[in-house]
Amino acid sequence: MPLLTILDETASGSILHRLELEIDQEMLTVGELIARRVHDEVAAYNARQTGTFQGLVQPTESERVLNGYRLRPSQLIDAEQQVYRALEAFQQNSFFVLINDRQAESLDEEVWLGEGATASFLKLTPLVGG
């Protein structure tokens, strides 16, 4: 099964977080890719339930900390709610997705994720005072 490298990057190109995701299909929609990524990171956090959650979007009732989000002890994250929040954030341009260095335009866009493919997620930070 091919591994997809996923990078969380800043606008200047600095890598904040790197993960690898097993993909069993070469073609997926952007929405399916986001959902798989979110499900994977939520499952990993829920299995360990310690430390910070380094996810694509902030879970409800969490506190933002350096390099992630802190939740109350023994609090599980709802994967479906996180997927919904992530898809909504993409549609509101809270982050961009670059697949093989090409920007994804919509959730329904099909992208190639075969061997050697990369996906970069660029989170945008709102301007203060605007």
Rank of each mutant, 00 (worst) to 15 (best):
Y45A: 03
L76H: 14
T52G: 05
V57C: 04
A35H: 04
S120N: 11
L21M: 08
V83P: 12
A11Y: 00
M1R: 12
E80G: 09
T118R: 13
N46K: 03
Q49Y: 04
Q75I: 00
Q91C: 11
N93P: 00
V97E: 10
V57T: 14
V30D: 03
L127M: 15
D40E: 13
R70N: 01
A44K: 08
D78L: 08
D8V: 12
S94R: 12
L16F: 01
Q25V: 07
E41F: 01
E20F: 05
S106H: 13
V83Y: 06
E26S: 08
A104T: 05
L124Q: 04
L3V: 09
V38H: 02
L33A: 11
V97P: 01
F90K: 09
I15T: 12
Q49N: 10
T50Q: 09
M27Q: 15
E41N: 07
L124R: 09
R36K: 10
R37V: 13
E41P: 00
M27F: 15
H17V: 01
D78W: 07
S14C: 04
P126K: 10
A79R: 02
T125C: 09
T52M: 02
L71Y: 01
Y45H: 05
L113S: 02
Q81R: 12
D8M: 11
E61Q: 14
G68T: 05
L107P: 03
F96P: 00
A104W: 11
D24E: 15
T29G: 02
V38Q: 08
L87V: 04
L87M: 06
V97D: 08
L4H: 03
G55H: 08
E20V: 04
V83T: 09
A89T: 08
N100P: 10
